[in-house]
Amino acid sequence: MNAKKITLKKKRKTKWIIVLSIVLIAVLIFTIRMAFYKPFIVEGSSMAPTLQDSERILVDKAAKYTGGFYRGDIIVIHDKTSGRSSVKRLIGLPGDSVKVKDDQLYINDKKVEEPYLKEHQQEAKEIGVSLTGDFEAEVPSGKYFVMGDNRLNSMDSRNGMGMPSDEEIVGTESLVFYPFSEMRQAK
């Protein structure tokens, strides 16, 4: 009888150790995840059709510290002055020359394809307008040139938003996670 009680106590103790270990691991994973990833709600249509208003995305904050940003990345920018955040596509890196002529993007005088604009380019042609509008810009050191994918309806580096700095970039979009039926990695 004593041996049975001791065995039962050991089994209960083992179960509690396992449960506590699982809870501790879950809390640790959640804490680490939140240190490197942040949920964000897309507001407005400046990134349509790539991202839609009210979609929820997961932002990879680690990109800031593990190799930086790349042309074409979708980034979240936080303006400390207004307290607002926005989602844009990274077009130009520090030191780049950015130019659009006849709806064609050139970075450092090299033609750059923008497959994410095809839908809007077709719409712009149908109504007889330029999607992006011609412009030229030099990206200063420590700054980035950004534009929304919905070029006709985007406040960005071309028209008043300015060029964000490293400190203003929260991270890169890693996943659209809500609505669940639309879960995907945006490109």
Score class of each variant (00 low, 15 high):
1 M>F: 11
3 A>L: 10
3 A>K: 13
3 A>P: 15
3 A>V: 09
5 K>I: 03
5 K>N: 08
6 I>R: 06
6 I>D: 06
7 T>L: 13
8 L>M: 08
15 K>T: 09
17 I>E: 09
17 I>S: 00
18 I>M: 05
18 I>N: 03
19 V>R: 09
20 L>M: 10
20 L>D: 04
20 L>H: 04
20 L>V: 06
25 I>D: 01
25 I>H: 00
27 V>H: 01
28 L>M: 07
29 I>W: 01
32 I>S: 06
32 I>E: 04
32 I>P: 03
32 I>H: 05
34 M>T: 09
36 F>W: 09
37 Y>K: 04
39 P>H: 07
41 I>G: 14
42 V>C: 11
42 V>H: 13
43 E>K: 15
45 S>M: 15
47 M>Y: 07
48 A>C: 02
48 A>N: 14
49 P>A: 05
49 P>L: 10
53 D>N: 09
54 S>F: 07
56 R>C: 10
56 R>L: 12
57 I>C: 05
61 K>T: 09
61 K>C: 08
62 A>P: 00
63 A>R: 03
63 A>E: 02
64 K>A: 00
64 K>D: 01
65 Y>G: 03
66 T>K: 04
66 T>L: 14
66 T>S: 10
66 T>I: 06
69 F>M: 03
70 Y>P: 13
70 Y>N: 15
71 R>D: 00
73 D>W: 09
73 D>Q: 11
73 D>N: 15
73 D>G: 12
74 I>Q: 03
74 I>K: 02
75 I>R: 15
76 V>D: 04
78 H>G: 05
79 D>P: 10
79 D>A: 07
80 K>I: 04
80 K>H: 12
82 S>F: 02
83 G>E: 03
83 G>H: 01
83 G>M: 06
86 S>I: 12
86 S>Y: 06
88 K>A: 07
89 R>D: 02
89 R>F: 08
89 R>G: 13
90 L>T: 06
91 I>L: 05
96 D>E: 11
99 K>N: 07
102 D>A: 12
103 D>P: 14
104 Q>W: 14
107 I>L: 11
109 D>W: 11
109 D>Q: 11
111 K>E: 11
111 K>T: 14
111 K>A: 14
112 V>G: 12
113 E>G: 08
114 E>C: 08
115 P>D: 01
117 L>C: 00
118 K>T: 04
118 K>M: 00
119 E>R: 13
121 Q>H: 12
121 Q>N: 07
124 A>K: 02
125 K>H: 03
130 S>I: 09
130 S>F: 15
134 D>V: 08
135 F>I: 14
136 E>H: 11
140 P>T: 09
140 P>R: 03
141 S>K: 12
141 S>L: 09
145 F>E: 00
147 M>G: 03
147 M>Q: 02
148 G>C: 08
149 D>W: 10
151 R>N: 13
152 L>D: 15
153 N>S: 12
154 S>L: 14
155 M>C: 10
158 R>S: 07
159 N>H: 07
160 G>I: 07
160 G>S: 03
162 G>I: 05
163 M>P: 05
164 P>A: 11
165 S>K: 05
168 E>N: 15
177 F>E: 00
178 Y>W: 15
180 F>D: 01
183 M>S: 05
184 R>T: 05
185 Q>E: 05
187 K>E: 15
187 K>Y: 11
187 K>P: 05
